[in-house]
């Protein structure tokens, strides 16, 4: 038993050494970002489409308070509970001192200004497909938001998940995969793809996860149980969600299902964001969802 333990330790150390190299944080390709200037009004659109407020506003914030990004909401996962940080423009407690490049690295590759990996509770796997110009606009907008001096709460995650470096390995498996629907048939579907796969990060809830918490791209948007607690995320593929495109768009605007029940659960906050988008965006999201493969060919 002892010997086995020693071998295990040795193997572990070698793995660590290899891992140390493989898991080093690498910055995103930010070519062209320098030349871009941020447009505040467009940034507000990116902010709504990407749903930043749903996670970074204070717990139970409503109305105007949704724009005070003090952080503090908890996100339970099988690996522990993560707490969203303060991302208001406070230089001390938020991201007031961040450059556009800092924000781009955080959103595109999940890396902090001092080079640490972020946990994927921050949905950078989805945001990795965001356009640089949109991030520049978002940065400009976020710097206009109210300052909060709320200190960050540390995550409640046990060993080994508490080691951020280990996330590098997870990223090797899950990051940088690009689009799921590679060839959108129309411009509208392409717009919908951008809103769903990248900014809207809809798959973070509506796509089932593998044992390591990665999105199962082969079962894209097919729903599944909530990872912690009761309930489930409904499937959005057309064979299972039989709503018309108009029904989907209307739901994203008002929260009303086709039988005029109203949305509940985590979707309520998503709808707070999608209801602020222009109608063309909601129509594009619906058009994209209507074209999703339902897996009947491979099952």
């Amino acid at each position: 038993m002892r010997r086995l333990a020693r071998v295990a330790v040795a193997v572990g150390l070698i793995a660590l050494a290899v891992g140390w190299f493989l898991t080093r944080p690498q910055a995103a390709d930010l070519t062209g970002l320098d030349a871009m200037s941020g447009d505040v009004a467009r940034g507000a659109w990116v902010f709504d489409a990407a749903g930043c407020a749903s996670c970074h506003s204070a717990p139970e914030a409503e109305g105007d308070a949704l724009r005070v990004l003090s952080g503090g909401r908890g996100f339970p996962s099988p690996f522990g509970t993560f707490y969203a940080p303060n991302i208001s423009p406070s230089p001390d407690h938020g991201i007031g001192g961040w450059t556009v490049a800092d924000l781009a690295n955080a959103m595109l590759v999940g890396i902090s200004p001092d080079g640490a990996h972020y946990y994927p509770a921050f949905p950078y796997i989805s945001y990795s497909n965001a356009r640089l110009q949109d991030i520049a606009d978002l940065h400009a907008f976020m710097m206009t938001l109210p300052v909060s001096e709320q200190p960050n709460r540390s995550h409640d995650v046990g060993f080994p998940f508490s080691i951020r470096r280990g996330l590098g390995l997870w990223k090797l498996l899950n990051a940088g995969k690009g689009w799921v629907i590679e060839q959108p048939a129309t411009d509208q579907i392409e717009r919908g793809r951008y809103l769903v796969e990248a900014l809207g990060h809809c798959a973070e809830c509506h796509t089932p996860r593998d044992a390591l918490g990665g999105l199962d791209r082969d079962r894209w948007m097919r729903g599944g149980p909530v990872p912690v607690g009761k309930g489930s995320f409904p499937p959005l593929v057309p064979s299972q969600l039989k709503w018309s495109a108009e029904d989907i768009a209307y739901y994203l605007e008002t929260g009303f299902t086709p039988d005029f029940d109203s949305a509940g659960g985590a979707m309520v906050e998503v709808i707070q964001n999608t209801s602020r988008l222009p109608p063309e965006d909601r129509a594009a999201i619906a058009a994209y969802l209507k074209t999703l493969p339902d897996g009947s060919a491979d099952e």
Binding site: K230, T254, G264, G265, V268, I271, S275
Partner: peptide, 15 residues
């Protein structure tokens, strides 16, 4: 109105 329905269902109605 839809927002007001959802605001109560979220915390008080089970999925």
């Amino acid at each position: 109105v839809g927002e007001a329905c959802g605001a109560c269902h979220k915390p008080y109605r089970a999925e």
